[in-house]
Design a protein around this nucleic acid. Sequence first.
DNA 1: GATGAATGAGGTTTCATTCAT
DNA 2: CATGAATGAAACCTCATTCAT
Lengths: 234, 234, 234, 234
Amino acid sequence: MAIAAKRTKTIMARRQDLIQGTIRSIAALGYNNSTVQTICDAAGLSRGLIGHYFKGKDDLLLEAFRYLVGRADEETRKAVRAVGDDPLQRLLAATEVTFNRASDDREGGMVWLACWGVAPWVPEMHELQRKLWRRYRSWVERMIAQAADQRGIKVDARRAALAYAQMVDGFWLGWLSDRDAYTPEDARDIVCDWLRDLFGEGRKAPVRGAAARKPEPSSKAKSPARKVSGGKKT
Amino acid sequence: MAIAAKRTKTIMARRQDLIQGTIRSIAALGYNNSTVQTICDAAGLSRGLIGHYFKGKDDLLLEAFRYLVGRADEETRKAVRAVGDDPLQRLLAATEVTFNRASDDREGGMVWLACWGVAPWVPEMHELQRKLWRRYRSWVERMIAQAADQRGIKVDARRAALAYAQMVDGFWLGWLSDRDAYTPEDARDIVCDWLRDLFGEGRKAPVRGAAARKPEPSSKAKSPARKVSGGKKT
Amino acid sequence: MAIAAKRTKTIMARRQDLIQGTIRSIAALGYNNSTVQTICDAAGLSRGLIGHYFKGKDDLLLEAFRYLVGRADEETRKAVRAVGDDPLQRLLAATEVTFNRASDDREGGMVWLACWGVAPWVPEMHELQRKLWRRYRSWVERMIAQAADQRGIKVDARRAALAYAQMVDGFWLGWLSDRDAYTPEDARDIVCDWLRDLFGEGRKAPVRGAAARKPEPSSKAKSPARKVSGGKKT
Amino acid sequence: MAIAAKRTKTIMARRQDLIQGTIRSIAALGYNNSTVQTICDAAGLSRGLIGHYFKGKDDLLLEAFRYLVGRADEETRKAVRAVGDDPLQRLLAATEVTFNRASDDREGGMVWLACWGVAPWVPEMHELQRKLWRRYRSWVERMIAQAADQRGIKVDARRAALAYAQMVDGFWLGWLSDRDAYTPEDARDIVCDWLRDLFGEGRKAPVRGAAARKPEPSSKAKSPARKVSGGKKT
DNA sequence: GATGAATGAGGTTTCATTCAT
DNA sequence: CATGAATGAAACCTCATTCAT
């Protein structure tokens, strides 16, 4: 069994190597231009190896996407769990970890972007993406509904969740497509402020300009936002 | 010259045919799976023709994207011009036309999505996309700044513009990736409400007429106004 | 239509080129060692052309076999028709043309041999082969039955047809596998003598040794035989 | 030495395993589609093992063919020896064992067929096949010559041997390619009758017992005797 | 100007063989 | 001695592009 276990471990390691190679290759060359050759080169392995560990290129591509999804999910869960049970805090934590991931793993983000662009025409990827998104949105909706309940505020949780989720995705998309337009921190702040405003919580730190805005009654400017990564995660 | 003009006209027509074929092919098969063959089939033309009108496949792809961009730009300008000079009305009109396009031309939207997914690795497309985005965001920023000025409200125009623009993109992305999660009308309403809330304008009747609507006495934020979506809508 | 006709003609010509290339390649290298490359080289065409005219390599291989079958069939029919209606003469003519083909087109014969060796594992080829064989055997059986009737001789036509057909195939097989063991003329004479003996007809020419045999009463030594090519033909 | 002997034994056993695996694989999948993987799977051994016991795949293939050839040879010799010295009885016994093998070991037959189809392009296999055939034909020729001598009949032994040998092969080929056209028993009867007719021996009881049958008073050709298959059988 | 036949580069995949464990 | 992971050659096929008609 020790041998079998070791073997299994090696197998997992090689699969990881190939997945990482895929991510590196796609990040560097794009989805189309990534060939079995570039992927295996990036993984430091020989071309034929892909057949040992995956059904083929498509399978590997899908698994790489699945890996990114799983990792984002895990990271977000951990961050959310760490802040306790308060729904707003959870949302804020999720938002933060989402945009942190943007800076920390732009490579992964680029792959995510590339996958968005092909998913509609790759049934399995499409399905995975939709499942993910629905779970994510429904989690956001629950959090928002709970937070509103706690505060005795009326919020259309569905619409708020949509606004949040799509804003986050939009910020991801925008930053991946043009990293100079704004920073992930900008995005994070805007979304977090939007969340706090939604529940009438004050902003924490003086946020660029906004803090200078007259505190009108309900200046709850909505800035919709949603974690790209979150979107891809839960 | 008449002959030359006619020729030019034919050339333009053929180019259009090929561009439309490209759009149809990408919408149906995705970016990767669209070949010169599928494109020309979709255009009802023969395979070799592409060389007469474009430098090659890549060029055609780029031109198709350029065409979509140009058309969207034009439509938006027209809608904005039609609504007069009021910045908020202009933003609302732009929002509306944007989401109307979603329903009216899902095919084009899918192509847009596909192009998003490859643009970072196609320098010319990337550049085009960035130019477009920057112009768009700066226009939004100006409109927001003007609208705020008119109302004597202090708004961080840059952040608001980012929030607006990325929310819109996020809704596009989400709807193209999963058309069942919400409707373009949902998206439009959420974004328009967000805009009105930003300026303390009350939500109103079906936004569809909003563009033509007279600027009523800004009834300011409705009651708690903190509901992302007020009473009406889903 | 002239253009369409010409095009069709060209298409047929290219298909023929590829089929001939296939035959030459298989004859020279065997079935396994024939690759798209060797086939196209033998045809004097480029590698990619195969996709224009056939579904793929397998399709081409099958068509090449079909071509050999069709040609053998045609040649045999023509030879049979040329000798009139007498069943024995028809059988003799078929036998002759069969073994003539052996000498005239050893290349085609080798391909036939190669196909025999793979047919059981290539459903379409197998089916074609079986259809062919059955039609051929039943024709032989009918001829034998008629010839026997004419002479008032009792012959088990089914068994005689089997003996004839398999003897011919056996001679083909043997000669293709070892061209030095006997000549096609040897084979032809043996089979023709067997046929004549079956119906009590005298042998035409003094055939090696056999003619010297004592004309015992009914020395109808059966030598079973069957045209390989015939077997593959009708 | 005991150890060395044991080792040798294991080696032989493994080689046998691989040879059997080869036969099973080829019978199931054909020559082309049999890979080292399928062969080792069929043998219940691991892929790399082939290198320990054979020079490579080609060598294994050749050895498998050699094994079939050797076994057939041995079986035939044994059957022939068992029947005594009478040449005709020997031929009948050889015929019988040949067609018995067809039914008893169709798998082996299929491999034989597959090898026929590649042998001309595999020099070593070709050579083996030719040696085998020549030895076989010359043995048949000797038997026929002896039987004719014994009876004072003049027979062209070479031609008769060719007819016999190719008829047998033809029946094998036909049955392997289409097992529904006739049974090996049909083939055996036809060939045995042909042999008996050649020497003016009457057809007799079920041939199955023929090998053990005492040489009865050659009742010479039956009546017209020109029926390929007398009264009995199908 | 329009067509599609022809080319050949390049992609994915399979496979025989080698070799470390 | 046995295993199967690793390699890289080579096969098939697709496809963008060119060019004669």
